[in-house]
Amino acid sequence: MATNPETDLPPTNHDEARRSFLRQSSLLTALALVPGPVVHAASAELDETVAAAFEKMPLKLEINGKKYKFSVEPRTTLLDLLREQLHLTGTKKGCDYGQCGACTVHVDGQRVNSCLSFAVMHEGKKITTIEGLADGDKLHPMQEAFVKHDGFQCGYCTPGQIMSAVACVREGHADSEAEIREYMSGNICRCGAYANIVAAIQEVKQGGQKV
């Protein structure tokens, strides 16, 4: 299981240079204490590849059951890491300010807005995204219910709605229509498929399947 998908990512020259710099460094955590991030680098006109190495930090995450090691800038959000570096684009950017819920993922089983936290803050944690919800080809019951009840239109908020819906049931906040609506209000569907989403959640809740 302990793969290092870092090598699966398309490397750029910069990435390569940074990685070799990091490999040479025996004091990875000390990097964080090195002063002089980008502003300093820019003003001192340091060699850009050297500066870039100082900008990054090592990070270990388990994403959808797979272990990853990264070297990331502290300013990279969990959302941007997932979308731009891992190409797990099922997690969506809808507002980038925690105001729409399209970026909802599970961190150690809890639903959170991945846009509002820096990836480095999740060191060692387990992340589940929409891509990790199904069991192979077998859809998760919530995914099945969304298809059956047409709990979406354009589909863009859907992964966030589904991740949130699964958590809503697990938390025990799906006991009535009104409770579902309140506890799903952090996920905006501009197409307005709300009634169908609530129906899907109710079916899963009442079906009693393990979510």
Binding site: A32, L33, V34, P35, P37, V38, V39, E55, M57, E73, P74, R75, F118, V120, E123
Partner: peptide, 9 residues
């Protein structure tokens, strides 16, 4: 967003 130093004491 500017770069920043990040520590986790």
């Amino acid at each position: 967003m500017n770069q920043f130093q990040y520590v986790r004491p």
